[in-house]
Each structure stands twice: as structure tokens, then as C-alpha cells.
């Protein structure tokens, strides 16, 4: 009830004193998740500089180094390869770093595409209502009734057939972004439509209508900023989903080519050797993938809990 309005605070002080930071600093799970996520992102971004080897540089790979076990677990390990090597003699640690880079890029870009499609379609459907709403939402329903995997498999198989695997592997990242982005936009469109419907009833929208503002301005300037919190929450889950979809596709051999492995394709490569004792090729990328997805989901949960208490800010 204290309406102590301190206008003189700088922006940084305001951020430091906000509820967001306050509750974040008191939630150990959220902080730990964020730390792990941040480490993953930094490692992924910096991989060309910090990785001990370059798995893309074919001249540096020696087939004689293949399937070396990790140093810690076996005497046969080589000091150069901390987590061992895969079947082609690539350093697992470096490949994981580069793979994480690929996975995160695809995840984030695919979600960006979903976001763009979802915002435009969801806003239009929610704001205009009526026939436009029915049409757009039925398209979304149809899209959702195909499983993401099915669409992705069909589309990537068609493109791979049409373009040839060599060309396909050149554009693999782009293709995966498109496939995953297009397959999952209805999630966003539905969420945004629901919050637009709620916001549209509020009086500030009526006030802008009475002012005579045009629809795009009301949609993007007034309604959209007020729908941001649910968007933020599902974005975390969607990034995790997109990374998983990519991993699954790569595991099935429809994603990233062997020369540019993502976490998924690494797991898939190692899967063939798991019964011959080379468990490390699958297990280490698997652990990284699982923890990456887990921390993103935990962060999403925390964000949802933070935004959810429906209290008036007064």
C-alpha cells in the first residue's frame, strides 16, 4: 500500500530492485538453471576459440585416433582427447561444443520463425475475430493434427530427394529451421490469440478505438506488449522443444549431416557403437542435451510461476 514513487532511480537501480530480480535471487533452482544455460550459450558461442580441436577441419583428424575412450575412465585414453573420440577420430569434447552451437542456433532461429508466424497469425485471429479467426485457427488445427515429426520427416525426405544429399547438407541448418518453425507455429498462434482475446476486452483498447487509431497500431503497439509474458514463458518451452525436435530428426538421419554434427547426430553416430563398448560417443552428448533441455524447462517453469500470480500491481 505504500505508493512511494521514487522517480529519481536510474534504470539500473530500478532493475536491481524489481520483483523479477528479487525473486530470481531467492530461487536457487532458477539461478542454477540460468547459470548452466548461460555456460552452455557461452561455450557454444565461443567454441571456435576454446575447443581443443576443430572437428570440421578434416585434415586434423586422424582415423588412427578413432574410438579412444575418455581419459578418466580408461588407461587407453589419450591426453589430447579428454572425453575420448568418435568413430572418425574426432574429439568428443570439441564436437559437443560445436554440436551445441548447431543445436542452439537451430533451436533459437526456429523459435524466432515460430514467433513471427505465431504473432502475426494469432494477433490477426484474435483481433479481427469472426471469419478470419475461424479460418486461421482451422489452419492451425490442421497443422497441429499432423505430428511435428511426421511433417518434418516428410518434408526433409522430399527436400533431400529433390536437392540431393550433398546440397541438402549444405543448407541443413536452414532447412531444419524452416521445418521446425513451420511445424510448431500453432502453439504460439493459439497462446497469443487467447491473450489477445482477453486484452481486447479491456477498456484501454476501447479507448484507442474511440481515439480513432487504426487496427495495426492498436494490435502492435497496444495489445502485443501486454501479451508478452505468456509469449516469454512458452518461448522457453518451445526452444527446448525445437532443440529436441532437431536432435530427434538428426538421430533419424534427417537432420544435420555427419560432417557438421549437432548433439542429436552425435548421439545417433555413437548409437551404432554403443554395443561394441564405445559408450562415450553417445553418453556425453546425451548428458549435455538432457541437461540443456532440463535447465531451459526449469527456467520456463520459474518464469511461469513468476508471471502467474494474478495480483493487481497497486
Amino acid at each position: 500500500m505504500t505508493t512511494a514513487v521514487t522517480a529519481s532511480l536510474s534504470r539500473w537501480q530500478k532493475i536491481k530492485q524489481s520483483d523479477f530480480v528479487y525473486y530470481f535471487l531467492r530461487d536457487k533452482v532458477a539461478m542454477l538453471s540460468f547459470a548452466v544455460f548461460l555456460t552452455c550459450v557461452i561455450v557454444a558461442l565461443a567454441s571456435p576459440w576454446i575447443a581443443p580441436h576443430d572437428p570440421y577441419a578434416l585434415e586434423s583428424i586422424d582415423i588412427m585416433d578413432s574410438e579412444l575412450p575418455p581419459v578418466l575412465f580408461s588407461d587407453e585414453g589419450d591426453e589430447r582427447f579428454f572425453l575420448g573420440t568418435d568413430n572418425q577420430g574426432r574429439d568428443i569434447l570439441s564436437t559437443i561444443m560445436y554440436g551445441m552451437r548447431v543445436s542452439l542456433t537451430i533451436g533459437i532461429l526456429a523459435v524466432g520463425l515460430q514467433l513471427f508466424l505465431g504473432i502475426v497469425i494469432g494477433l490477426c485471429a484474435g483481433y479481427f475475430g469472426g471469419k478470419i479467426d475461424s479460418l486461421l485457427m482451422r489452419i492451425a488445427d490442421v497443422q497441429l493434427s499432423f505430428s511435428t515429426m511426421m511433417v518434418a520427416i516428410i518434408v526433409s525426405a522430399i527436400f533431400q530427394g529433390a536437392m540431393g544429399s550433398e546440397m541438402y547438407s549444405q543448407y541443413a541448418i536452414l532447412m531444419l529451421v524452416l521445418i521446425i518453425g513451420i511445424a510448431e507455429w500453432p502453439q504460439y498462434a493459439r497462446t497469443i490469440r487467447a491473450s489477445v482475446l482477453a486484452e481486447k476486452k479491456k477498456e484501454y483498447v476501447e479507448a484507442s478505438l474511440i481515439m480513432g487509431l487504426k487496427a495495426p497500431r492498436i494490435m502492435f503497439r497496444h495489445i502485443l506488449p501486454n501479451c508478452l509474458s505468456p509469449i516469454l514463458v512458452i518461448s522457453t518451452v518451445q526452444i527446448a522443444n525445437a532443440i529436441m525436435s532437431e536432435a530427434a530428426l538428426s538421430f533419424l538421419g534427417l537432420g544435420m549431416p555427419v560432417t557438421q554434427p549437432s548433439l542429436g547426430s552425435l548421439i545417433s553416430i555413437g548409437f551404432e557403437y554403443i554395443f561394441s563398448g564405445s559408450w562415450w560417443i553417445t553418453v556425453f552428448p546425451g548428458i549435455v542435451l538432457v541437461s540443456l533441455i532440463l535447465v531451459i524447462n526449469l527456467l520456463g517453469d520459474w518464469l511461469r510461476d513468476f508471471f502467474n500470480p494474478k495480483v493487481y500491481k497497486d
Binding site: 479491456k202 477498456e203 484501454y204 476501447e206 479507448a207 484507442s208 474511440i210 481515439m211 480513432g212 497496444h222 506488449p225 501486454n226 493487481y312 500491481k313 497497486d314
Partner: peptide
């Protein structure tokens, strides 16, 4: 309608929802 819109304005019931909270 725009010239008329300018001459007619409205004050709403709920002070908590009648302004865009992000502006």
C-alpha cells in the same frame, strides 16, 4: 468519422484496465 472522434471522448469505469499498462 475521424473529425467526430476528436470531438467525442470517453472516460471508462475501471481505472485498472482503461490504460495500457506498458505505456
Amino acid at each position: 468519422r475521424r473529425p467526430i472522434r476528436r470531438q467525442m471522448q470517453m472516460v471508462f469505469q475501471n481505472p485498472y484496465t482503461s490504460m495500457n499498462p506498458r505505456m
